[in-house]
Design a protein around this nucleic acid. Structure first.
Lengths: 248, 248
DNA sequence: CGCGCTTTTGATCGTCTTCAACTTAGGTGG
DNA sequence: CCACCTAAGTTGAAGACGATCAAAAGCGCG
């Protein structure tokens, strides 16, 4: 991606896109601050940044005692945890409307995962102090935070139940359905993950993931419609899942 | 897929043990209401029940629009989700200090799991209205709820990373360490789960779980110290995990 | 056009599942 | 107290499935 060229060395790999205008946020309804009146944003001590991250860039690292949470406006972010042997396990995939880094609200904690953009990501960078400050004057924000955490719990449970259970083919099929749910564009098309990411999601090897995706393509359960863009036959995938999970 | 919950031999009977006295709760420090002043409990509209559930009893069922959350004082509770084929997947094991059913705080939702006591369980049954009521006058309770949810997120992530990754022997070893962490008695001993529950935790068949536990017993990584009570060699289990997760 | 990367495919091996038989433990009634 | 009964746990053998190692094919980019 062109962004990496000509950047000052202190800047890692994301691009400042100006200060956020929360009151006119395009997806305001699903964001953290959707219930707040416009004037609440006027006297914030610290600005909310509006940023772009190209694929592969790191939002934050596991164990780092950061001071910011991130609200995803566009794109997909993976949360991963590194094993002792250096292997990575992806524990969540989050898209538009999700907020990551909320574990920092527990005093003295660091980020629990490493967060990486898997696509072009636009997000709001919210200083923890701002969040705490706003919460003080707007108790209803507390509910929004709780809903965000509940969402993450639900996602994690879905992950355990559907992406980490049963045969590999079924898991990959479920992953494709998940991508369609949280990461599809206006045509309903999705951007596939690299095979090793798929593998790190469902807990198989990248070869197995590759074999299954190749097989799906041959059987026309997925097909390419443009560069980096695939259409999936949700109906047929559902059937495959039903067929292969039952005891014949 | 293996069938679970075949016959509803589960009993829903539980025993009322009187109204809770939160101010003198033995494990008050870890409970939901630990920060609240004693007089806050005086004029509650609805009582907080203090109950006992024998092993196998159901706290609540997935999809049921209940009006109560449960705070565990003693014992172990499993949260499980049923597959279309009737097979069950355990997505969490919770012990002393955990609160279950908090998903009801989202308006109009039902329980997301079925909660079953795996041991003798003592818990406080808290009407949702009471929780909401207390929260209104004690904003700090909001933090406690958030911490509870964050705990569940962390548990779920740990589950994905350690109990649903790698070879079966490693997973079972991790499960034993988890039981020791959240469910050990004052001697550090644990109550083993039935083999089919172990299987439903780590995502293998009950036969595989059985083989591995039998092998652990033969190698003296676990041994029985009393009826329903086993001692585990955490050190040796850790070594086994390190040994078997690395690529030789 | 060729270089490095990801993806695909092949062949072999180890692990886990499956189905079945057998053993053990706990509980009930004679 | 023992005989019996049932449910839970253990073990065996066969085969399916995914891991592993290795090599070839495809693709983006300079």
């Amino acid at each position: 991606m062109p962004h990496r060229l000509g950047k000052p060395s202190y800047c890692t790999d994301h691009e400042w896109m100006g200060r956020s205008d929360c009151t006119h946020c395009a997806i305001r309804g699903m964001m953290l601050f959707s219930q707040l009146p416009p004037e609440s944003f006027d006297h914030l001590l610290q600005p909310i940044g509006n940023e772009h991250y190209p694929p592969g860039s790191i939002l934050y690292r596991e164990g780092y005692a950061g001071r910011e949470v991130f609200s995803i406006r566009r794109g997909l972010v993976k949360l991963l945890s590194l094993g002792v042997d250096g292997s990575e396990r992806i524990v969540r995939l989050l898209g538009k409307g999700a907020v990551v880094g909320l574990e920092l609200l527990d005093q003295g904690t660091a980020y629990h995962h490493t967060a990486v953009a898997t696509q072009d990501v636009d997000l709001c960078r919210i200083p923890l102090a701002t969040l705490v400050d706003l919460e003080l004057h707007h108790p209803e924000l507390c509910d929004r935070v709780r809903q965000q955490l509940q969402y993450q719990v639900d996602r994690a449970d879905h992950w355990i139940k559907h992406l980490n259970t049963g045969k590999a083919r079924v898991r990959i099929a479920q992953l494709l359905l998940l991508l369609a749910e949280i990461g599809s564009d206006r045509n309903g098309d999705i951007e596939l993950l690299p095979r090793d990411d798929m593998a790190a999601v469902v807990g198989v090897t990248k070869e197995t993931a590759s074999r299954i995706i190749a097989e799906f393509k041959r059987h026309r359960l997925i097909y390419k419609v443009a560069a980096n863009t695939h259409r999936i036959e949700s109906q047929k995938l559902q059937e495959l899942i039903a067929r292969e999970s039952s005891v014949d």
